[in-house]
């Protein structure tokens, strides 16, 4: 009887022992598997980031390029300072990127345009996907023609940008939602209107911008008013400085306001661009002084006051930079033309 009781205790103890050790072993391997999963995700993220980094650098050094890239189907979150894949952030450095907040899908479209004021400052890089839908409303003919020539529209299905032109503003309310991850409405000189079919769409699924200006050509766009969806209407989308309206400086900047999905993204990228403009202007200022000293020719004067105005405007904001550029552009251009005519070194 005593032996039987002892045996029963022994069997029960063995089972408890097996359960504890089994649980321990399972936990151990589960922890290793989890760690390994995290590690391989980080590694994949780092690999993709590294490849994208080289791609951005390679593309960024050439102007007027368009490329459609095959990418792994993982979401890429893009901000003005960095981009993140699997929570692995990668700094963008001074690359100026205009992009929607998230890139999804297997194709990514990259474009570059030079930013000239009138000297070239840098290339602007535009990133988007064929899955993001751009609807351009009430655009003047000249703008439509330039957009058609600039953007990758007539490509194979799923490889070009998804752009639609709506010339009649009364048709805006009847635009249908087509399940795109993001829809960007671009209005020209008209108030924004949320199509009724988008009322149930999440706020991050749609945004709008109103471009205002004279529109004799693309360079005449003067400012962009950014909007985001709140409830069943568009409200001001404010950047980090609290503004929703920002100056547009040239075609490259206008395209940036169209492609980026937030005021914050536009403001941040343009802040980087104007900082670079200040550096380039300072370099040209120093160079013109050094050249003037070296050649001793009084007729070879440069429009340095225009450069000085741009340098001092940088700290006062985008609108002031635009004013300085608008005021100095013609004198900079004529100074360069005169230099060429008189066989002097050019300013830029």
């Amino acid at each position: 009887m005593l032996h039987q009781k002892k045996g029963a205790v022994e069997i029960q103890f063995n089972w408890i022992f097996i359960l504890i050790i089994g649980a321990l072993i399972l936990t151990f391997f589960f922890a290793i598997a989890q760690k390994q999963k995290q590690l391989s995700e980080r590694r994949l993220g780092a690999d993709i980031s590294s490849e994208l980094d080289l791609l951005f650098t390679g593309q960024g050094v050439s102007s007027n390029t368009i490329s459609v890239m095959n990418i792994p189907n993982v979401p890429i979150r893009v901000s003005c300072d960095d981009y993140t894949i699997f929570n692995v952030p990668r700094r963008l450095g001074n690359t100026i990127i205009f992009s929607p907040q998230e890139i999804t899908g297997k194709k990514m479209i990259g474009m570059t345009l030079p930013w000239t004021v009138p000297f070239k400052v840098t290339n602007f890089f535009y990133l988007t996907t064929p899955r993001i839908r751009y609807i351009i409303i009430n655009a003047p003919d000249v703008v439509q023609e330039e957009l058609t020539a600039t953007l990758p529209l007539n490509r194979a299905v799923g490889e070009g940008m998804s752009v639609e032109f709506v010339n009649d503003t009364s048709l805006v309310s009847s635009i249908l939602y087509q399940n795109n991850p993001h829809t960007r409405l671009i209005f020209f000189n008209t108030d924004p209107e949320l199509p009724s079919d988008f009322e149930s769409v999440k706020a991050r699924g749609i945004s709008a911008v109103v471009l205002q200006g004279g529109f004799t050509d693309f360079d005449d766009i003067s400012e962009a008013h950014f909007y985001r969806k709140e409830g069943n209407a568009f409200v001001d989308d404010q950047g980090a400085d609290g503004n929703a309206v920002y100056a547009i400086i040239g075609k490259a900047s206008a395209l940036g306001a169209m492609i980026t999905s937030t005021a914050e993204g536009y403001e941040c990228s343009m802040a980087k661009a104007t900082h670079r403009l200040k550096n380039v202007a300072e370099i040209y200022r120093g160079r013109s002084d050094a050249i003037f000293t070296a050649i001793h020719r009084n007729e070879c004067g440069f429009a340095v006051s225009a450069l000085d105005a741009i340098i001092s405007a940088e700290s006062q904001g985008l609108s002031q930079v635009k004013t300085a550029i608008d005021a100095g552009q013609s004198s900079l251009e004529s100074s360069n033309r005169n230099a060429l005519r008189l066989s002097c070194p050019t300013l830029y």
């Binding site: 102007s63 030079p114 000239t116 009138p118 000297f119 070239k120 550096n279 300072e282 370099i283 040209y284 200022r285 120093g286 160079r287 050094a290 050249i291 070296a294 360069n336 070194p345 830029y348």
Partner: peptide, 23 residues
């Protein structure tokens, strides 16, 4: 640069480089 945005490939302007260093 030859004109406003035409770059000469692999060409460095000595005076721009000197000014860049100073800045």
């Amino acid at each position: 640069t030859q004109d406003r945005d035409i770059e000469e490939v692999n060409c460095i302007d000595w005076y721009k480089a000197t000014s860049f260093k100073q800045v």
